[in-house]
Simulated scan of single mutants.
Amino acid sequence: MKVHMVLMSVALTAVLLTMTRLADETPPTPALITSITSSAPPAGTPVEVPPAQAPPPPRVYASSSDLPDGPEFPVAGAGTFHVVPGSGPVVGTGPLRTYAVEVENGITVDEPAFAAFVDATLADPRGWTARGARSVQRVSGAASVRVRLTSQQTARHVCGFEIPVDVSCRDGNSVFLSAARWFRGAVAFLPDLDAYRAYMVNHEVGHAFGQGHQPCVAAGGPAPVMMQQTFSVSNDEIVRITNGVPQGAVIPRDGKVCTPNGWPYP
């Protein structure tokens, strides 16, 4: 009898333990499920994205002679130059002027691209060969004009920096194109860098061909390629920037403003 009662007690204990375990494993009630999920947005609800920040406004330049913002450029080089290999056919008619393309030693640039741009500019029908004035030909040896891509510091040394503006220049039969301007351009031409590069080549080679500086003559018309457009396309502003420093031309203070132009015969 006692054995029987003990067995019944053991069986009852096992039943109670099983019921307790099942109670612990009982799934949450619907109310509990609702409480857990109520903080999540319903499926398909659009997620609010914060608005993108507006880009900064374009820089307002204090002077049209300021060097525009832009990529890095060669600041210093060796002060010596090497020829970019290449030659071409005679372009145009009239007296022949040969030219070589050079890059300053110690600077890193795409030399074939620079040479190709110079070639295309000097061969353009709007350029110095128009109207039978002269012909040009690229050579790799002795040349009547040497077109040189020049670091900023070398250009400042050769061309001067009395007026604190980065410029290009012609010295003897060599044309020094400032890398600062080649990579950044000039305010008057923004945002068209290629148009300014054509102006650089034509203006400085124009000096090598005997051309002097000119003012804006027809207000609202294209500036003469020999106008100092790196400073400005406004006669008054050129006078203000140069502040009486001789520039090889008398620029009138007459209020005339031209449009930028890089070609001798646009």
Results as ranks from 00 to 15, higher is better:
residue 244 G to L: 02
residue 249 A to E: 04
residue 206 G to P: 11
residue 232 S to W: 03
residue 241 I to A: 02
residue 204 E to P: 03
residue 209 F to D: 13
residue 241 I to D: 03
residue 240 R to V: 00
residue 205 V to T: 04
residue 225 V to G: 08
residue 232 S to A: 06
residue 253 R to S: 14
residue 199 Y to Q: 01
residue 210 G to S: 03
residue 203 H to M: 03
residue 237 E to M: 12
residue 202 N to P: 02
residue 231 F to P: 05
residue 210 G to Y: 11
residue 230 T to D: 02
residue 231 F to I: 09
residue 241 I to V: 14
residue 213 H to Q: 07
residue 245 V to N: 14
residue 251 I to D: 13
residue 238 I to A: 07
residue 231 F to Q: 02
residue 230 T to C: 00
residue 228 Q to D: 14
residue 199 Y to R: 00
residue 217 V to N: 10
residue 209 F to N: 14
residue 218 A to H: 13
residue 240 R to W: 02
residue 226 M to C: 11
residue 253 R to T: 06
residue 239 V to N: 06
residue 204 E to K: 04
residue 250 V to S: 15
residue 223 A to M: 02
residue 250 V to M: 14
residue 218 A to V: 15
residue 227 M to I: 03
residue 222 P to V: 00
residue 205 V to H: 05
residue 252 P to M: 05
residue 199 Y to N: 00
residue 209 F to A: 11
residue 237 E to A: 14
residue 245 V to Y: 08
residue 239 V to I: 06
residue 237 E to Q: 12
residue 218 A to S: 14
residue 217 V to K: 15
residue 252 P to K: 10
residue 253 R to E: 09
residue 220 G to F: 11
residue 225 V to K: 03
residue 213 H to C: 01
residue 247 Q to P: 13
residue 205 V to N: 04
residue 231 F to D: 06
residue 214 Q to N: 13
residue 213 H to M: 02
residue 236 D to G: 13
residue 219 A to R: 05
residue 199 Y to A: 00
residue 250 V to G: 15
residue 250 V to A: 15
residue 254 D to V: 04
residue 220 G to P: 06
residue 216 C to A: 14
residue 255 G to I: 08
residue 222 P to W: 02
residue 255 G to S: 14
residue 232 S to I: 05
residue 230 T to L: 01
residue 218 A to M: 07
residue 206 G to Y: 10
residue 229 Q to W: 01
residue 249 A to L: 06
residue 240 R to F: 05
residue 236 D to C: 10
residue 248 G to R: 13
residue 218 A to R: 14
residue 206 G to S: 09
residue 223 A to Y: 01
residue 232 S to L: 07
residue 238 I to V: 14
residue 202 N to I: 02
residue 221 G to M: 09
residue 202 N to Q: 09
residue 241 I to E: 02
residue 219 A to M: 01
residue 209 F to S: 09
residue 203 H to Q: 03
residue 224 P to R: 01
residue 233 V to R: 00
residue 240 R to M: 08
residue 251 I to P: 11
residue 254 D to Y: 05
residue 234 S to A: 03
residue 248 G to W: 08
residue 238 I to W: 07
residue 217 V to I: 15
residue 225 V to A: 08
residue 249 A to G: 08
residue 252 P to A: 10
residue 204 E to N: 08
residue 246 P to G: 13
residue 250 V to F: 09
residue 218 A to P: 06
residue 228 Q to R: 13
residue 248 G to Q: 05
residue 239 V to H: 07
residue 210 G to I: 13
